[in-house]
Design a binder for these strands. Structure first.
Lengths: 214, 214
DNA sequence: AACACTCTACGTACAAATACCTATTGCGCA
DNA sequence: TGCGCAATAGGTATTTGTACGTAGAGTGTT
């Protein structure tokens, strides 16, 4: 790492951010580091300071890591984004990689792995946590057959979200100003797409796919 | 803080643990710190090294923070436990406080709050993140009226668990070797006790109350 | 002995969800 | 221009869930 390396750290958990900031600042090499707490703040920062490497959390308020990564890559396509996720969720890493991330680490990675990831992306290489690699390989074949969140349309996600809130089709129809029969139809399609056979399975699917938070 | 203060850090996320370890080690006062990655490791450590203060994560593999806290308090009741949680979940903090925790911080607390919490528990006081306090106050009145996990009988929990797995009453009846009408009745009672009005709400309740894991 | 509680079970009625049809509109892509 | 797809909506039938009754057998407590 050269002394001019500019590194941004984007995470909404203050303690985690402070700790990682400290670790990064106490290596042999001293990159220039700026830390912010969500995607929007990162974009604001980018207006007059462009990071070479961004360590990006995914689940954040205001603007999440996926949206933020897309925006960053649009304006500064040479930026190297390293995703930092709490969970090894299949949808997350595929979406982050779509969004332009070059590396993907779990938050229970060691700091050494963070350093390895930084070196890797600087050399134009990719880097993944062992757990992520394992998960990718395990899902390689399943992927093609199984529907994911992105297979649900926007409207379907909206319907599913309201189902999770405990609303009946009738109630959902009323708040969306459409016929109950339309909601029936959407629900039927969602069951089919998610390969669920009842409401309980739908709710579990929604939570696993981050359509609904408990 | 005196120089002899002994502090244990229990968290399964390596990066978070390493970062916080670093921060704690670079204060003016230098406590003696040992870091482990789950409750069982903490208990093993306690065998020949008793911490004065324990910074304890809740969600951990092998042994979670609640179980670990109970064990620690049984053997070393003077230990001050500070809980570190990702979410402001109502059940978590009540269970952790039952288990003997004196302070409760969220992981998006600042390091300053960690220091304040440490000072507070050393003086025998309690300490809570502002978000936690807010949540506690908001739930103060609700608490007494609302049933919690313990209000469901063992059988009801079993039924609810199977509902979350996506089984119908008929299917549940078959695997439990009872009549479908009995499962109907259990389900009705569960709806009443949890103040839910349909399956979706039941599943959300079950997850919030750790009866079912996604 | 009286009481409370759990688990069991049934009757009845109605509401909601599931399943399999068809069909129109509008929008974007090849 | 034609094609696919999302969103809308209805018909009809069946299954499942929700709601309010009752009630016996077993267990443990006062």
């Amino acid at each position: 790492m050269t002394e001019s390396l500019k590194l941004a750290l984007v995470d909404d958990h203050d303690l985690f951010r402070e700790g990682l900031y400290f670790l990064l600042n106490n290596q042999n090499s001293k990159p220039e580091i700026k830390a912010v707490s969500n995607g929007q703040e990162l974009l604001d920062l980018q207006a007059n300071w462009q990071a070479d490497i961004i360590l990006m959390d995914i689940e954040m308020p205001v603007m999440n890591g996926i949206e933020a990564s897309k925006e960053v890559m649009k304006k500064y396509p040479n930026t190297k984004i390293i995703a930092l996720s709490m969970h090894a969720n299949e949808n997350y890493y595929s979406e982050m990689i779509d969004a332009g991330a070059k590396a993907f680490l779990l938050k229970n990675s060691s700091f050494e792995e963070v350093q390895q990831a930084i070196e890797a992306v600087m050399e134009g290489k990719n880097f993944f946590s062992p757990e992520i690699l394992e998960s990718i390989i395990k899902n390689l074949n399943r992927k093609k057959n199984q529907p994911s969140k992105s297979d649900l349309t926007q409207r379907e996600v909206e319907i599913l979200y309201n189902i999770c809130k405990g609303l009946s089709n009738q109630e959902i129809a009323e708040i969306l100003f459409i016929s109950k029969r339309t909601v029936d139809k959407h629900r039927e399609n969602i069951l089919l797409k998610t390969q669920s056979k009842n409401t309980a399975a739908l709710v579990i699917y929604a939570i696993k796919n981050h359509i609904f938070e408990v």
